[in-house]
Design a protein around this nucleic acid. Structure first.
Lengths: 208, 208
DNA sequence: AAATCATTAGACAGACAGTAAATCCAAAAA
DNA sequence: TTTTTGGATTTACTGTCTGTCTAATGATTT
């Protein structure tokens, strides 16, 4: 699995493996239907590990949730890199949007719950805001490649439309619309807004 | 204030007043900056009332939060009624959208926190879903007045765009965009989608 | 004057986050 | 082999929060 051998031998490897097992257990519990109130104790039991081990590995419940989110986000990061290699703005924007739609969809329930928990968890809230800011920076840089001066408003709107809430809302809850359809809708909106912003007017205008 | 006198005299009136005071205290606490972990005890203290009184009045913490949301939503209900009196579809949709944007904006922080708490609170979650469904029904009925057969997809998309998450995302968090601007953006998107859906194509299409 | 009822204070059980100390055991180092 | 190290476990404790119960108070209602 891992490309380089652990420098400290089996012991470190075993520790890393329990860490992964705990993360996997947390992910499973959070994606389950009865995920209301996921306690550290429940995660520990699911990972077949003592509660203390969870604290040894992640410090706190917040730390565990933060690590879980970053684990999920790791894959998405690579996809975004590819968007920068696009030949033109439209393609780059589309790839960028699709990368995030794919990410949001990959663990939709887990991400939704993590974002909900962030409302009551200062640390987790800070991390998610940081990650959202990273998306904004990436978007700003991406637009700067093709546009002279990307206006803050344009960046803001596209930033929000490529966020989790927008995707989650468009993909539906109880009656889930297909991933492809939601992605298409978001992409279309992003494209329209970008066109409107670059073609003369600075802000998307309301009809009439 | 209230049009009809309480049939049970002062005692009932006093009880109703404490109920209101508790709701007001909860609203204040939830809208405050340090609203992480709002306990029943904190609400009781803020309302200058014993903890038990809160349970007498609302049954549980969930009951209190549900009552709070419905209190906030009460005003919005009337605005939606007016949308039905519009002369044409475009006006009706605009009024409908604006009514909800106004509502979402009226207590944005409180609503955001309530929706976050709903992730961990089955009862509150059920209530919010019910209210969201009511918005969907209202929208379906509204479209039925002007269109022969409003397609489910069209209703779904407009429904999601008039939801809290979409407004909250577009109005921004740390750097809040003006209410008017966010409302304009949502309204424009709704209008565009409705036009696209009624003019031939059944689904909004992606460019190219 | 007597019954009613909202309210209060205080105690209690149960769930959960987080901390601390003693112990076990396999892997690393001597 | 023997010793040391460090991850994991067990147990127990503190503190917070929800929810329930009981006894008492005091104003309103009858």
């Amino acid at each position: 699995m891992s490309p380089r051998p652990y420098h400290s031998g089996k012991r470190q490897a075993a520790a890393d493996e329990t860490r992964q097992r705990i993360l996997a257990a947390a992910r499973t519990l959070l994606s389950g239907a009865s995920a209301h109130q996921v306690s550290v104790d429940a995660v520990a039991k699911a990972a077949d590990v003592s509660r203390q081990t969870v604290y040894n590995a992640f410090g706190s419940k917040s730390g565990l949730l933060e690590a879980l989110f970053d684990t999920l986000a790791a894959r998405a990061g690579m996809d975004v890199q590819e968007a920068f290699a696009a030949p033109d703005a439209a393609t780059a924007l589309t790839r960028f949007t699709e990368a995030f739609c794919r990410f949001w969809d990959s663990d939709r329930t887990v991400i939704r719950r993590l974002r909900g928990m962030a409302v009551l968890d200062r640390d987790l809230d800070r991390l998610l805001r940081e990650r959202d800011e990273m998306r904004r920076s990436a978007l700003t840089e991406l637009l700067r490649r093709f546009t002279d001066a990307p206006e803050p408003e344009t960046v803001d709107i596209i930033w929000q439309l490529t966020g989790f809430e927008a995707y989650d809302a468009l993909a539906g809850r109880d009656t889930p619309r297909a991933h492809a359809e939601a992605t298409r809708t978001v992409t279309a909106a992003v494209t329209v807004l970008y066109d409107a912003a670059t073609a003369g007017g600075s802000t998307p205008r309301t009809r009439r």
